[in-house]
């Protein structure tokens, strides 16, 4: 057996043992997300426009990450709406930033990997870079949206008379509690992957000026910063979506007092 298959099997068993059925479904979500990522690349390879492909794939990835392995309908729906809106908003940031920064494609440090390859492939690496950034931030956005919406749905259950406005404020408060650890998840997640690049820089004595203008480094740093921005927008956005849905629900139940909460949801 290969190392991959043994590790995958162990991860599945561990997730199943700890999370039961919910854990097993969460494991499946990893596989589905991988298939979606690979499919995106294949579709881009066949010259489909990268951005629309990524947005469709991104929406499905968000749905898979949020709905697989979570049972609470109310909080998952809120998190999904909020994270799709954040993805679109973040795109408005990413497109101009990537155009301006000119970090698409490969840098001098990649030369060895590119030896003997044809670089003129006829697909804009700028667009590919934009897709890469969008996809790499989705996990963090989904996770933050879930953390806030499940916190808020807990509050909704405990205080059924709470106003939408108060709920929004509570959402920001939950955001304050998670922001420190979320930033660290992203920081370590990204910087762990680029440890070798940093060893390269320090080993070859790049100056600070060289590092902060280096294509590969700036590309990576922008990814981290854009993920931070994504998470930061996610907090008020999820709070806003939750408070809007709560407001609408309470209005509907006022008009038709017999309607149960579940019906009002639809």
């Amino acid at each position: 057996m290969t190392t991959f298959s043994v590790l995958a099997l162990l991860l599945f068993l561990a997730m199943w043992a700890v999370g039961g059925k919910q854990g097993a479904i969460a494991f499946v979500s990893l596989g589905v997300n991988f298939a979606l990522l690979f499919l995106t690349i294949v579709l881009v390879q066949f010259h489909l426009p990268p951005l629309p492909v990524t947005l469709v794939a991104g929406t499905i990835i968000l749905a898979v990450t949020i709905f697989f392995g979570n049972d609470d309908d109310n909080s998952t729906t809120t998190a999904f709406y909020a994270s799709v809106i954040v993805m679109l908003l973040l795109l408005l940031f990413i497109v101009p930033v990537e155009h301006w920064a000119q970090v698409a494609g490969f840098g001098d440090e990649d030369s060895e990997d590119l030896e003997g390859m044809s670089l003129y492939i006829g697909i804009s690496f700028l667009k590919v870079e934009i897709c890469t950034v969008v996809l790499s931030t989705l996990g963090a956005i989904a996770e933050a949206a879930m953390a806030i919406s499940s916190g808020l749905s807990e509050i909704e259950m405990q205080q059924p008379t709470i106003t939408g406005k108060r709920l929004f404020g509570d959402g920001l408060n939950v955001g304050k509690q998670i922001i420190g650890t979320t930033f660290n998840t992203l920081f370590f997640g990204f910087f762990g992957g680029f440890l070798s690049l940093f060893i390269w820089f320090v080993g070859l004595r790049y100056s600070i000026g060289e590092v902060f203008n280096d294509k590969v480094f700036v590309a990576e740093l922008l990814m981290v910063l854009l993920s931070f921005i994504g998470v930061l927008i996610t907090v008020p956005m999820t709070a806003a979506v939750a408070s809007w849905r709560w407001h609408r629900q309470s209005q509907q139940s006022q008009k038709k007092p017999i309607v149960t909460k579940v019906d009002a949801d639809e």
């Binding site: 700890v18 999370g19 039961g20 969460a26 997300n33 990450t65 989904a142 879930m146 998840t185």
Partner: peptide, 23 residues
């Protein structure tokens, strides 16, 4: 733990794998 582990693993997975997109 079990409600947060799925999204968290996906966070890292997307970071690690999406990065290889251009190459």
């Amino acid at each position: 733990g079990r409600s947060i582990m799925g999204p968290l693993i996906n966070v890292l997975f997307l970071i690690f794998v999406a990065d290889t997109f251009p190459l």
